[in-house]
């Protein structure tokens, strides 16, 4: 794979219309050797160039923290797919950030499993605590709050996800306070294994011995907003 040349990167001859909006300098829009190797692996996994789009967009988002048009153009050039196609994919999926977000994006699940257990209470508590509304970012650029659709952890509701990464289960207001303190100290929560209720009887707790953080399923808190 060839590294796209930066001179023609953002204004290649074949793209009509206005040049794409710039947020990063040419010098930043390069892949390291390791990343190039990774991209080559991704491309080999699919029969067409398009197949690797999603994985390379993820790589770009992890590297640049969001996907402005120039990064999308960069991805398009990397895997030799038209800009419009990559833009189409990037805008279809919610986890790709098309706007600049805070350093920590808190996706609070409020879908019905969490709703009935207090997902909205947690959302409103965070809004109050951080002084912003859902969809907004704090002035210091640290936190963005988002209302998420079902994140697939209804058994340990209410829960949230930190920046498309670790899940934090069985939330309470105290737990949220602790999380915010940790995040301000730049401490991301680790992976939490959630026990199976049947394992608690059969195995005396969690079945994994190699995970530090273990959360037990617990009786969900009473929601203040749905009743």
């Amino acid at each position: 794979m060839t590294q796209p040349t930066n001179g023609s990167l953002l204004q290649p001859d074949y793209v009509p219309g206005e040049p794409v909006e710039r947020h990063f300098a040419d010098a930043d829009l390069v892949w390291t050797d390791d990343e190039q190797k990774q991209i080559a692996t991704f491309r080999s996994e699919y029969p067409t160039n398009d197949g690797a789009v999603m994985k390379v967009l993820w790589m770009a988002q992890n590297k640049f923290s969001w996907l402005p048009p120039d990064v999308i153009q960069f991805v398009a050039n990397t895997i030799e797919v038209p800009y419009a196609k990559v833009y189409g994919v990037a805008t279809f999926y919610t986890q790709y950030f098309k706007e600049k977000k805070g350093k920590f994006v808190l996706d609070i699940c409020t879908c019905f499993g969490c709703q009935v257990c207090g997902g909205y209470d947690i959302l409103h508590y965070l809004e109050e605590k951080l002084g912003i509304e859902k969809g907004q970012t704090t002035d210091d650029g640290l936190f963005t709050i988002q209302e998420a659709e079902c994140l697939g952890a209804c058994g340990s509701a209410p829960m949230l996800q930190v920046t498309n990464g670790p899940y934090v289960h069985n939330l309470t207001k105290e737990k949220v306070d602790g999380l915010i303190v940790d995040l301000k100290a730049d401490k991301m929560p680790g992976f939490q294994s959630v026990t199976l209720p049947q394992d608690e009887t059969d195995l005396g707790g969690n079945r994994r011995s190699d995970t530090e953080a273990v959360t037990e399923y617990q009786t969900p808190p009473v929601s203040e907003t749905i009743h």
Partner: peptide, 12 residues
């Protein structure tokens, strides 16, 4: 997967 207003939610 049992969830909602239940004492021991989880996967059974």
């Amino acid at each position: 997967g049992i969830s909602g207003h239940i004492n021991k939610p989880g996967v059974y």
